[in-house]
Simulated scan of single mutants.
Amino acid sequence: MHNDIRPFTLDIPQIEIDYLHDRLARARWAAEVPGTGWERGVPLDHLRELAHYWRTGYDWRAYESTLNAFGQYVTDIDGQRIHFLHVRSDHPDAKPLLITHGFPSSVAEFLHLIEPLVNPAEGQAFHVVAPSLPGYTLSTPLSDTGWAMARTARAWVELMSRLGYQRYAVHGGDVGAGISGLVASLDGDHVIGVHVVTDPLTAANTATFLPGMADRLNPDDPIDKLILTRMETFQRDGSGYLAIQNTRPQTIGYGLVDSPLLQLAWIAEKVKEWTDLPVDRDQLLTTASLYWFTGSGSTAAHTLYDQAHSSDWGAPPTVPQGFAVFGADETVRRVVPAPANAHWTEFPRGLHFPAMEAPAELAGDLRKFFGPLT
């Protein structure tokens, strides 16, 4: 068993970058039906512009250097190669913080969040540990089946133990929120608290998969009616990407690994639908590039299949819990299971990707929640 932690330097061969540019230059474009827009998928003009910039304007080497400057490492846990960023603070009171991305994302989601956490102008500082999910980008190849949230959480507990952190904080969004809650549940003796981000759309979408949630909501109550409407809309119009990955990940995987346009559209669609504040285009393309260069669109899909077929949800955490709600409205507290003494902060703007949309606000809430905890 390999318990060692090894420094990792990202260095994509130039031939791979040239190949990406060549594929983008020779792309075959799907015809667009007149009079249609985002309701049928990523519009042609939007994807053309984004792909053109990916080929002619985006500087992969600059972002490769940025990731390398953070400090990258790999280790093997439960037979799986795990890649992670590890950025230590110079502040003497810094607390270890494990942050986990979701789908369709990568550690590049945290490019603008890490610095204000590690070197804040004031308030609590953190040593940041940001792993890549198994099967995603640099945590590849995927070793075997079964990498659902619970198994990943157990790997994260082992990772923090290997790093020597006896007391640490955990944070995540999307799939990363579920994993963070499981880490807190599994390792409550070492976790000081768990903080997750959510938004009204995500809360309603998640409620779709919670057994009995629809039955607990009253269609005559205006707030419950709004939740039920969002759940129905997600099932009808917003869950196609998930349905195919939850059932046929290998089939969609061929296209994601072979076509940079499909991989780009697969990510860009969700970023557009799940944000309401501007997202750095280069940051989005860094994630798209990581998926493309590692061919991990397929293996990420396989982990979603494994989660959809898993019944290992763990127990609720008993450590302090914090929730940051972006694009807040009255529905989230009705849906999200939380203890009565939970920390809540509600932000009027931002949605699913606050680390990209509103990193200063998210960093501030992490300092506010974890600062008093020991």
Results as ranks from 00 to 15, higher is better:
residue 92 P to D: 15
residue 92 P to L: 14
residue 93 D to T: 11
residue 94 A to D: 03
residue 95 K to E: 00
residue 96 P to A: 11
residue 97 L to Y: 08
residue 97 L to H: 06
residue 98 L to Y: 08
residue 99 I to P: 01
residue 99 I to S: 07
residue 101 H to K: 12
residue 102 G to M: 03
residue 103 F to D: 07
residue 105 S to P: 08
residue 106 S to W: 10
residue 106 S to D: 14
residue 107 V to F: 07
residue 108 A to L: 05
residue 108 A to I: 02
residue 109 E to C: 08
residue 110 F to M: 06
residue 110 F to Y: 11
residue 111 L to D: 14
residue 114 I to Q: 06
residue 115 E to R: 03
residue 115 E to H: 01
residue 116 P to V: 10
residue 117 L to I: 05
residue 118 V to T: 14
residue 118 V to F: 10
residue 118 V to Y: 10
residue 118 V to H: 09
residue 119 N to P: 03
residue 119 N to L: 09
residue 120 P to Q: 08
residue 121 A to H: 07
residue 121 A to K: 02
residue 123 G to P: 07
residue 123 G to L: 08
residue 124 Q to F: 15
residue 125 A to S: 13
residue 126 F to L: 13
residue 127 H to R: 05
residue 127 H to K: 04
residue 128 V to C: 15
residue 128 V to D: 15
residue 130 A to Q: 12
residue 131 P to T: 15
residue 131 P to L: 15
residue 132 S to W: 01
residue 132 S to C: 11
residue 133 L to N: 13
residue 134 P to L: 11
residue 136 Y to Q: 04
residue 137 T to D: 13
residue 138 L to E: 05
residue 139 S to Q: 07
residue 139 S to K: 00
residue 140 T to H: 00
residue 140 T to C: 00
residue 141 P to N: 05
residue 141 P to G: 04
residue 143 S to N: 09
